[in-house]
Design a protein around this nucleic acid. Structure first.
Lengths: 272, 272
DNA sequence: CGTTGGATTGATATGTTTCAAGTGGAGTGG
DNA sequence: CCACTCCACTTGAAACATATCAATCCAACG
């Protein structure tokens, strides 16, 4: 199954869930402007509203926020921000996966961040992004042009606080990853990635229905090479470690980019 | 020369400089409370006031800030914050070096941050620090107990902004380090560390007098093992790379923890 | 049904770690 | 003042994990 189709699958699962939450809204493949309840429209069922940056806004603030917001989609591989440039917009990931990469002069690459819904992309305070932000799958963003965003950052007190909270979370994530890159073995790195994805996925699932016990099926979204660049390894090594974990019974490979984890806790042990 | 004495030397250079800046104040080895100009006292010549967190405060705010602030010193090796605990205070480094470390279950260690004056230690918003903060040399901190600090964070609009700026800088630093840990060779790692220290040192020097061209002498402050834990290597490898760089003429070892860099730009090239 | 891009597996090369021995300077005590 | 000790540092040799090079494999797709 090709990357794009898998991404769409993931997308559809999310949209199905949103439909459950908000049975009146008419969300198709490109849900446009049909909403019934009130002026919040597509914001009401949106992940970003429920658990992302928009969660920091009270109803009236959100209405204002909506006036500057606009959705944009990006094809796999497309760049969202370039390194060392001031981006045009701050944005929230509505669906899909964004990877943040840094490149060395000779082409060596390191993925320094992976953004899933409802994470934010971009830098506040008129700063440059020190990395490339690139769509790893089909991606839908809710974009806030800087002019308006910076203004609301000053007007809505909760927003700046939220931004600080998010930045601290990002920092914590980066520090954890430094331990992985500096001190963990190849097997621990791969296991760590899977555990991280499992954890994030279960947060999302919990909302809809029950948490699926300790066994989980994951979408990797990334190809082996991208995983390698995230873990500071080569793609061959990543392959071999997948095989190892499979041999040890800690995972099952149920598709090119699909992994079944029978016991997340056991895998977490192998993650160091 | 023993570690402690070297640290004191570095300390004294800083204090000498402070004396230049503020000829009236009577700064001895333990400058206490003798100041003449106004109520700002020891804050006036302090690095933290000039380039650290206190720089975000206007004069009146600083006066209030001073009422909750208190200086504390830590001996080399002493812990400042423990991992996964809410610290009692937010603080700024006045002199010395603080290292932030994370430890794996089996003792593997990774230094995830190195704080020099006028950096900040601690977490805002009542969060836990996800690392151990430990004095690497004799350290002097200016501490702000949380109760008061959080209050002023809400009262002084510039302060929260500044905290966000600093957190973004920390994040950028962490991302750079991820590239180092994930993709650079041992030699590039050591070179990168030296370039980073040289850059930071020159920022400090610039203020006092002219930047010392492209040649610099650095205090490492850390022992080989600590450097290794910062770079994701073993201390033997760090040793060997120091020797390599010396053989290549890029550095000279002028003391156990003292390095002379004849041409910082040339070293930066070797840093990848 | 051949083409293509990604994934897997194998064989070999290499950089770093590990284990081990030795150095050198600073502090100690006779 | 001179051993003596200690700890950090240095250097060497062997072991090891991961990278590199190379050959399939496999599923999707035109």
């Amino acid at each position: 199954m090709p990357a794009g189709q898998q991404a769409l699958e993931a997308d559809n699962r999310r949209k199905n869930f949103m439909r459950l939450q908000n049975a009146n809204s008419n969300l198709g493949t490109s849900s446009m402007t049909l909403h019934h309840e009130d002026a919040l429209g597509r914001c009401e069922p949106c992940v970003v509203r429920r658990r992302g940056i928009c969660n920091a806004l009270i109803r009236d603030e959100l209405k204002q926020f909506r006036t500057i917001a606009g959705r944009r989609t990006f094809a796999p591989g497309q760049h969202i921000h370039l390194a060392d440039e001031k981006p045009e917009f701050f944005a929230a990931v509505v669906s899909g996966v964004v990877k943040l990469t840094k490149v060395l002069f000779d082409g060596r690459q390191q993925v320094v961040g992976l953004l899933l819904p409802p994470d934010s992309v971009g830098r506040a305070l008129g700063r440059k992004t020190p990395y490339f932000a690139q769509a790893a799958t089909e991606v839908e963003l809710c974009c806030f042009p800087y002019a308006g965003f910076e203004r609301m950052l000053d007007d809505f007190p909760g927003l700046k606080q939220r931004l600080l909270e998010q930045t601290l979370d990002e920092l914590d994530g980066a520090l954890d990853w430094m331990v992985l890159l500096g001190r963990k073995t190849a097997e621990e790195r791969v296991a760590s990635l899977l555990v991280m994805l499992a954890t994030r996925a279960s947060i999302n699932d919990d909302e809809g229905e029950r948490a699926s016990a300790c066994t989980q099926t994951l979408d990797l979204h990334l190809k082996r090479e991208e995983i390698a660049d995230f873990l500071g390894l080569t793609y061959e090594t990543v392959c071999r470690q997948f095989s190892m974990l499979k041999k040890r019974g800690l995972i099952e490979l149920t598709g090119r980019r699909r992994v079944m984890v029978p016991d997340v806790a056991a895998l977490a042990l192998a993650a160091g």
